[in-house]
């Protein structure tokens, strides 16, 4: 093959971001994480965990949602979304883990999680699940290169165990997506009542589910644009409808939870927490819900 490296504007931007990331990582390992993150002794987790890892993993939820949709609920119309979703999930998880390596104080010790027995620790569960799930994703996705490379025997073995592995992946996802929430249930003192809930694990799980179809849509649109095929608007509309329902359900659950916990008052107190809560609800839930419910937008 005759490769010619042609860098687009986007490529350059991405390279620049990667270079910057390398510098940041270097600084972090040379001088400690204090220099690169706005975290302190009272708030030891910041952007890296909150945005980087948590969101990455939530976005990675596309993998298990679409898998479940297609393979378990048998909505085979969306089969073409499956592999991209798995790839996406794999990338997200790999990204999250890379970030984790930067974020962890002693990344060379991370294997400790796998040789420890800490059943009370949500992080322990997340660690195990994520590790297993990543393996699963790798196996799932390995079908593509294996098939193309013509490694038939291996491909056949992977295909043979595909079903149980796929099931494992979906189950593990449910577990660790919710465990990320469990992680947060321990710190009611650091989270405003509007967000903190006993039911955080469920909320986390739902939000990951919510992220699934949305990401799949985005992914499809992006791929269509870059690879130059016409997007399957019919399928997308279907996904959007699912998404709308998920958003609606999530919203209902969250509100229900708030009222059930008796924390609803906090929504109406004039505080920055309440304001940001409403902004979040408005732009994150209500707006998409309304938009997605409108057939013309879909």
């Amino acid at each position: 093959m005759n490769w010619r490296i042609r860098l687009t504007w986007w490529d350059k931007l991405l390279l620049a971001i990667m270079a910057a990331a390398a510098v940041v990582a270097f600084v972090r390992f040379a001088t400690g994480i204090g220099t690169i993150a706005n975290i302190n002794n009272a708030y030891p987790w910041g952007w890296w965990v909150g945005y980087g890892i948590m969101t990455m993993i939530a976005i990675g939820g596309v993998g298990f949602t679409i898998t479940a949709l297609v393979e378990i609920l048998g909505v085979h119309r969306y089969h073409s979304f499956l592999r991209p979703a798995v790839l996406m999930a794999f990338l997200c998880y790999a990204g999250a883990i890379t970030m984790l390596m930067v974020e962890l104080g002693r990344p060379w010790m991370v294997w400790m999680v796998l040789v420890s027995w800490a059943p009370t620790s949500a992080l322990f569960e997340v660690g195990w699940c994520a590790f297993l799930y990543l393996t699963v994703l790798a196996l799932e996705f390995s079908q593509v290169p294996l098939e193309q490379a013509g490694w038939d025997r291996t491909f056949r073995i992977v295909r043979a165990i595909y079903i149980p592995i796929m099931l494992l992946g979906v189950t593990l996802s449910h577990l660790h997506q919710s465990s990320l929430g469990t992680l947060m249930t321990l710190i009611p003192h650091k989270i405003n009542a509007l967000w903190w809930s006993d039911n955080l694990p469920l909320l986390y799980l739902f939000s990951a589910m919510m992220a699934g179809p949305a990401m799949a849509i985005l992914e499809h649109l992006a791929a269509a644009r870059w690879l130059g095929f016409a997007p399957r608007m019919d399928l997308l509309a279907g996904l959007a409808k699912i998404e709308a329902w998920l958003v609606g359900l999530f919203f209902a659950f969250q509100m229900g939870d708030l009222f059930y916990r008796g924390a609803a008052d906090a929504m109406f107190i004039a505080s920055w927490f309440a304001v940001s809560f409403w902004v979040e609800i408005a732009f994150g839930l209500m707006l998409p819900f309304v938009l997605l419910m409108m057939p013309e937008v879909r």
Binding site: N41, P44, L104
Partner: peptide, 22 residues
């Protein structure tokens, strides 16, 4: 045994454990 995840710090309701950020 520590991996430096700071979950302990995050978890402590008395905000006690501290970290060598540097």
């Amino acid at each position: 045994r520590c991996i430096g995840c700071r979950a302990c710090m995050q978890a402590c309701p008395f905000i006690i454990p501290k970290y060598d950020y540097d």
